[in-house]
């Protein structure tokens, strides 16, 4: 569990981090909280020749809330998200999910931007980011650009992040009107990652019909996905248990499932439906 040798650079600014990434041409990796990268280094599954430490960049840290959205700096830790009064008030779903990430050490060190950039297919945040339609702000050699979470995560450990891009922040839109969200997770007993994690957001109109529904599912399939068939089965229907029960049956309609030692593909499909139903039931506004 000893990494091979690497050079260490400490970025002075986001610009500087981008410049360093560019100058090392794919040989460098960004180090933020280190809770995804360092285990990989120790196992020698990755051996970048340079680590660019952005841990000291306070510009990347912090939570700010407006009327329409909550913006979380990439370096904000899971613990900060879980304990943030603003997030608890505006997006309790996000705090609820952050509380369930890893263990205390992981939450104290691991960062929101780092977790999304690493794109572990069983990490918790992608489900919530999908359900909230989050948008990431990236900075690269050509300046800043925004990318929706659905376009950002391309596959297991694979994102649209360019070789010289740094995640700056993530903005989570606050749903309008009467709405509620919930995250239901089945943690792997060993790793604590989600065997299945379902984040659900439901908004209803004045007549009690579901106006908006978004369901993000992580862990179960090869990559986190939006359960669009579930959503389609919800919209315009009465916000009740029966609607949810039927819609949740579609939770495995998207996603590519394969099994591992702990859970077969069939079992994962089944858990998707059960956990989708449970998350939706709690998300009834």
């Amino acid at each position: 569990m000893i990494p091979s040798a690497f050079a260490y650079e400490r970025a002075q600014s986001v610009r500087d981090a981008v410049r360093l990434l560019e100058s090392h041409q794919g040989e460098a990796k960004i180090l933020s909280g280190g809770h995804s990268l360092i285990p990989l280094l120790k196992l020698r599954l990755t051996s970048p020749s340079v680590l660019i430490d952005i841990g000291g960049l306070s510009e990347l840290r912090g939570i700010s809330a407006g009327e329409d959205q909550v913006v979380v700096g990439a370096l904000t830790t899971h613990a900060e998200v879980a304990n943030s009064p603003v997030i608890k008030e505006k997006l309790p779903l996000l705090a609820e999910a952050a509380r369930q990430i890893g263990d205390l050490q992981v939450r104290n060190r691991g960062t929101v931007g780092g977790s999304l950039a690493h794109a572990d297919p069983a990490s918790d945040l992608p489900a919530v980011a999908l359900a909230l339609d989050a948008v990431l702000t990236l900075e690269g050699p050509d300046g800043r650009n925004e990318i929706p979470i659905g376009d950002f995560i391309l596959g297991p450990l694979l994102t649209a992040l360019g070789g010289s891009d740094v995640v700056v922040s993530i903005s989570f839109p606050i749903p309008k009107g009467r709405w509620k969200g919930a995250y239901e997770k089945y943690p792997h007993p060993a790793s604590g990652y989600a065997v299945v994690g379902v984040a659900a957001v439901l908004a209803v109109d004045g007549g009690g019909l579901i106006r908006e529904a978004r369901v993000g599912i992580t862990g179960a399939a090869d990559t986190p996905y939006r359960a669009r068939e579930v959503e389609a089965a919800l919209i315009g229907k009465p916000a009740d248990e029966e609607t949810i029960r039927q819609a949740a049956e579609q939770a495995d309609a998207e996603g590519s499932f394969s099994g591992d030692l702990f859970a077969s593909a069939d079992y994962r499909r089944h858990l998707c439906k059960v956990y989708a139903r449970r998350a939706l039931a709690r998300a009834l506004p």
Partner: peptide, 16 residues
């Protein structure tokens, strides 16, 4: 050994 780390080999944890 396919359960060669704490990612796969589940040790009991207090919260269980």
């Amino acid at each position: 050994l396919v359960t060669g780390s704490f990612m796969d080999y589940a040790m009991p944890k207090a919260r269980f």
